[in-house]
Structures are given as C-alpha cells and as structure tokens.
C-alpha cells in the first residue's frame, strides 16, 4: 500500500475563509511537487453552518481524494468537532482556537489550544484568523517551506490585504513555534 498519504482538515463555519487558506496551503505544496487533492464540505447557506476543507497530500497520485484518517485537524469552530473527531488518526495533531473551540472531547491525539482568532483581532481583523491558523499549522506540521507558503498567500491575496495577510501568517508561525516548545495537552483539553 503506497502511503506517503497525509490528510489535513481545516474545519469551522462558512465565511471563515477555510477553503481559501486550504487552497493556499495546497498551492504551496503543489509548487513543491506534491500531489494534492483539496475537497470541501459546506452547507447550502452562503454564510454560517458547518464547513470544512480537506487536503490529501501524496507523493504519487492521490487515489481517494477525501479524508479517511486525519493527520492534522485545525478547528476554528466547535461545530467542526463532531463530524471530524471520528476521522482522527491515533496520535493526530489538533490545533484548536482557544476562544471559538474551548473544549475538546477525549481521545488519542495531541492538542494545541492557540489564540488564533484573538491574534487576528489584535492584528486588526478577525477575518484573518484563517491565515493565522495556516501559519500555526505550517509551523507545527512542518509540511512545506515557509517561502512557498508566503508565495501562495501573496498569489491569492488582493493587494489591499496583502500586508495584513502576511502579518497574520507570520503571527501564526510564531504561535506555532511557541507551541512546539510548550508541551501539548495529551488528554482532554
């Protein structure tokens, strides 16, 4: 069984920019020669409601493009816990927003509660919480080169938001790097 397969989910609610940040990560990975499949689940409402975007990353062609066993889970809303929790691989890493997703269920996983949305608010807009999360994920998962990710963020950001998004990415990296040195909670957070 060819398995360089890595699965990442960014879960939250509609309107948080989950699909966009997943796409940025996917672009960065694609630039590095990885095969990526990025899928999404959303509800018919344009805003609000459960939403996630999944990445399946592989050295070869991705056979089944949907999540089956998550290596990484980023939670930007508690709504995303229920559909995602059963998919976690044993020992998977979970990054949860301290404010929007304070409580996590029991399970065999490593969890980091990070102030993603609060950091975004401090940067000037809660709307960049997705980019902060992206930075934190990239730092913790060490899944792609930082330069490639910055390039992907640049490519997908309108000029007027570029500085904000790059700041958010850097802030996310900082949060992630701090978390590496800090112990992660291994039981219920």
């Amino acid at each position: 069984m060819r398995d360089s397969r890595v699965e990442i989910r960014i879960g939250g609610t509609g309107g948080q920019g989950l699909i966009l940040c997943a796409k940025m990560l996917a672009d960065a990975l694609a630039a590095a020669g990885k095969h990526v499949a990025q899928s999404q689940t959303y509800e018919p409402t344009s805003r609000g409601g459960y939403c996630n975007s999944d990445l399946v990353i592989s050295d070869g062609e991705v056979d089944f493009p949907l999540a089956t066993a998550l290596d990484w889970l980023v939670l930007l809303d508690r709504l995303a816990i229920r559909p995602s929790w059963p998919l976690l691989k044993p020992g998977a890493l979970v990054i949860a927003d301290t404010r929007l997703c304070p409580d996590l269920p029991e399970g065999d996983r490593r969890a980091h509660h990070l102030p993603l949305s609060r950091t975004a608010i401090e940067l000037g807009s809660e709307r960049v919480a997705n980019i902060v999360a992206l930075g934190a994920l990239a730092a913790l998962a060490e899944i792609c080169e930082r330069r490639a990710l910055e390039q992907a963020v640049r490519a997908d950001t309108p000029r007027s938001f570029l500085d904000l998004n790059l700041d958010a990415l850097a802030a996310g990296y900082r949060l992630g790097e701090q978390a590496i040195t800090a112990p992660s909670s291994t039981s219920a957070g």
């Binding site: 996917a26 694609a30 095969h35 990526v36 499949a37 990025q38 899928s39 493009p65 949907l66």
Partner: peptide
C-alpha cells in the same frame, strides 16, 4: 459534486 469541487494538482 465531490469531483466537481475537488481541487487536484
């Protein structure tokens, strides 16, 4: 729908 909105390299 999955294939339609799936992004792949």
């Amino acid at each position: 729908q999955v294939i339609a909105q799936l992004a792949e390299t």
